[in-house]
Design a binder for these strands. Structure first.
Lengths: 114, 114
DNA sequence: CGGCATCCGTAAGGATACTG
DNA sequence: CAGTATCCTTACGGATGCCG
């Protein structure tokens, strides 16, 4: 028999889908201190990436409801991205993730292999 | 100028890489209560998946040091997977992720679109 | 400045079959 | 029971170029 679709039911399955994007976590982190403009965001990303790629990632996060896109009607254009309400709640995850990430980095140093 | 490689330096970049696997979070969750055998793991996965796929995911997590594979030398074979030390620490992340995931699911219900 | 349309290459996941 | 080897397919990210 088929297993039921668990997206929107199981918190782990749901969270996993949101986090699979290659840059989602880092973008959320960059926005956690307040609104950031598009180009500024691109500059702060950990790897060089084309604006096309960043644009797509932002679109996904916006569609998922995690971030908010605010467009100022002016020339030259100005667009700011910030965390939505549910995005702000995600900051708790970021905090714990940061802590664990650092511990994991420590762990990596203790390994002889690889 | 080139940006430096941040894996193993930045906790977010590092954590992101670990979590990109399509099933990593859920596997970690399934193992968080103690060792689980291979087939049992497969049965409990949220979607039908071939053992080939599961096997690969487990291999990745094992190589990353998050889980431990214990093989009992017997016929028929018996293999148990469990969380490593750093994997156990990840349970804190799982806990916060679960909480947020549920809030996100609530949020999804409030949306009219999609 | 902040996009979108398009094309392309790669890596990851899935299906199938064989093994100790 | 718990894999590995192989092939196939798809989705995603990256590169390039055009636009308001």
């Amino acid at each position: 028999m088929e297993k039921p679709e668990l997206f929107g039911i199981c918190p782990y399955v749901t969270a996993q889908k949101v986090l699979t994007g290659k840059w989602s976590i880092y973008i959320m982190y960059l926005l956690s201190d307040g609104p950031v403009r598009f180009n500024e965001l691109q500059r702060r990303m950990p790897e060089e990436m084309t604006h096309t790629t960043l644009s797509r990632q932002l679109k996904v996060l916006e569609r998922e409801g995690l971030i908010v896109r605010k467009e100022y009607q002016q020339i030259p254009p100005k667009v700011e991205y910030s965390l939505s309400e549910i995005g702000i709640k995600f900051k708790e995850v970021l905090s714990v993730l940061e802590e664990w990430g650092n511990e994991y980095i420590q762990y990596l140093h203790t390994r002889k292999d690889i």
